[in-house]
Design a protein around this nucleic acid. Structure first.
Lengths: 245, 245
DNA sequence: GTTGATTTTTATGTATACAATTCTATTATG
DNA sequence: CATAATAGAATTGTATACATAAAAATCAAC
């Protein structure tokens, strides 16, 4: 396999303290968020090493970090795969996100500065642009970044770190349970509403909007559950009329 | 340095799927929780490797996991040290814990099974025994385990993983800001009360008790802040009567 | 042809060697 | 005497080699 991405060792750009495994981590992370690496994909250490032009040491570091965030599943002696949460696990993840997002939203209403709010708006404009031009992958990533930016604005590093894990897991869930349907991704409307509520320092409204926002994800899960159920029933609809083995 | 702990490679005990870095991770984790490794301690990779009888590869894995949980601080090219949160950071950690513990407590009130509650009680009895016999270290660890057990009972893996990080950070905070004072560690009383509320499925009471429990930690921080302030004032009380430089 | 055992191959886990960086001690200089 | 510069030691970062465990392929027997 050829080296798609050469990592320069000495790239003395401003403020770049990123180490090599950070870069690999972010590339894989983004690829998962943008659904270029769908749930279940095996992540071979040597292949990744060749792709990024680094040794397995670096790849393993990046993978174990992703594993800690539960975005990939590390199976001892059997390598890493992109996580593919069940519907139940997805519900638990969304629940955890409700808990965190509520706290984050309230903190942001208290602490947000006006220029930060302006930056948020720009981010959502970018998000809208992506969806408009059909770039789903980048759109989903920016949608996730919106929520990460909120967590940053809450100025609580532990919550931010947890949010990072939850946002990527949610992107994974969306990737897994929302095959093909694009229209549901018009989340930017809700993002704009949320920003307005925050700008008005209206905690109750902002939290309500956020919960409503999460309801949408959860609703999809129920739909999918029914669909899967129907599929199974369809697949085995002939069982009763046949001899069982 | 001698090998304090030999790790057997083939120890086919029941259900033991622990890999070597898990074991190293837990040993260091426990040492931090029990305050045998005080905040600020440098964690030298080679020394740790000799102590545990493994190569730096394993040690680095364990350290980066601890770093991800923010229990140790990883400074690029400069090694790992046990985290020593400032009072502000401590407040943020306690805040995050309020958020998680509230959710956990409510979930546990809904889902706790009677035999789990009995196990909890036993745990707190053990905790009390530790403090009674003066084993602060083990007591603090069991106190932390009480909260981890609650998070397990909430049956929400993402919340549990976050709780794990927060509990160890809180132990660190207690270690840092509560030097010498033992009497404050009579948290087991509050733990018993909390168990009762859970057994009665009284959500409001349980949450209130939990918040009150966390108030105690936060109160310590304020005390310590004042103390530090007083110390500084005492140290420099002679400045005004002296020539400055 | 299907099943099961055995070998071969591939991938992961761990140790080690070397490179790059930071820390420390010594010396030089004002 | 303090400060700066520099050489050396110690420590971390990365690549690689080897050990070990899965997975795949081959072959045997039925």
């Amino acid at each position: 396999m050829s080296r798609l991405t050469e990592i320069k060792k000495s790239d003395p750009k401003k403020g770049e303290k990123k180490t090599q495994d950070d870069i690999v981590y972010e590339h894989i992370f983004d690829a998962i968020l943008e659904q270029r690496l769908p749930p279940g994909t095996k992540l071979n250490e040597e292949s990744l090493g060749e792709i990024f032009g680094v040794s397995r040491t670096i790849i393993r570091r990046a993978l174990s970090r992703l594993g800690y965030e539960q975005v990939v599943v590390l199976r001892p002696n059997r390598g890493a795969v992109v996580a593919s949460p069940t519907i139940d696990e997805a519900r638990q993840i969304v629940f955890a996100r409700r808990v965190v997002e509520k706290a984050v939203t309230e903190l942001v209403c208290d602490n947000a500065e006006t220029d930060q709010i302006e930056q948020l708006k720009q981010l959502v404009r970018d998000e809208r642009a992506c969806f408009d031009r059909g770039d789903l992958g980048a759109g989903i990533r920016l949608s996730g970044e919106f929520h990460l930016r909120l967590a940053e604005m809450a100025k609580n590093p532990p919550l931010l770190s947890f949010q990072r894990s939850l946002v990527s897991l949610c992107s994974l869930i969306i990737a897994q349970f929302e095959k093909g349907e694009t229209k549901s991704h018009c989340s930017y409307d809700e993002h704009f509403e949320l920003i307005d509520a925050i700008a008005q320092r209206d905690k109750d409204k902002a939290v309500a909007l956020m919960m409503h926002h999460l309801d949408h994800i959860e609703h999809k899960l129920s739909l999918d559950e029914e669909a899967a159920d129907n599929d199974l029933k369809a697949i085995f609809s002939n069982v009763r009329s046949r001899k069982l083995s």
